[in-house]
Amino acid sequence: MLTNFKRVLRFAFADFYRNKGISIAAIFVLVITTLLITGLFFMQGISDFIILQVKDKIDITAYFKSDTQEQDILIIKDEILKASPDIKNIEYVSQEDALNDFTEKHKGNTVFSKALIEVGNNPFLPSLNITTTGDTLQYENISNIIQQSRFSDFIEKVDFSQKKDTIEKIFSITKNISRFGLGLAIILILVAVLVVFNTLKLVVDKSKEEISTMRIVGASSWFVRAPFIFQGVIFGCISFVVCFLVTILLSYLLSSGLSVIMPGFSLSNYFASNLFAIILIQLGFGVIIGVVSSFIVVNKYLKV
């Protein structure tokens, strides 16, 4: 058994070497398609990051009456937190903080400065800024909780109804982007699989007559098929090494440029934190498609 295994391996390497031209072509196609799939994986990461950034900008604000004590607001904050597990972040902004934020934001704007002087006192209300982990419905639920009668003595207004349309639009856009990305990924993966399958079919087709002769002289299905399957593994492994090196290089080269366009996103960090998944995708795609394609194509010619 071990002897036969060694023989099959030797045949696989010999055929690989003797068919250099077509072997290199097959590896090239496999590298391109594996890189395409790796690219899709990175695109998924980038789009997830962008969607998260956009979603993080969504919040609702509960404004309290100006005479509400900070202590009461903090108690309400705790109660809201208890009542709604979907809250990602809830931040108390006092009247002073709101005023400071405003003046800082509009520093140098004489119109706003004059208006504040004319009003005389601090016109801002204390508030709670709330973000959730979920969609519009969750924001609506939180808004409903805040507007319950037990809080009505303290609450001036909740801006959910004003922001509802915007929130819905953002969620709809992000959802559509995700769907489109998924659809595009499926189509591209299918195209990649078909291209690789047909290329490997060419590799096996070249040996069609040889397979037929092997059968005529009495070789078992395994003895004929195994070298081609091992060749598929060789193609997959070489393609993986090439793709992995290219991915490392591209991650390094593009990382700084991307972090300028998308502050907070580091391509090299994304690569490092998803190293195992990337290895699995590149090695898995190359080897599995190599083996399966060889198996299917050789099977066709074994019927001799």
Binding site: N19, E209, E210, R215, I216, V217, G218, S221
Partner: peptide
């Protein structure tokens, strides 16, 4: 199929087109 391959192993074939393994 397996039985047929066993029979083929008992036969030595010489053909006009040689049927050699080109690679």
């Amino acid at each position: 199929s397996d039985g047929l391959q066993k029979i083929r192993r008992r036969i030595g074939g010489i053909y006009q087109d040689y049927k050699l393994l080109p690679l």
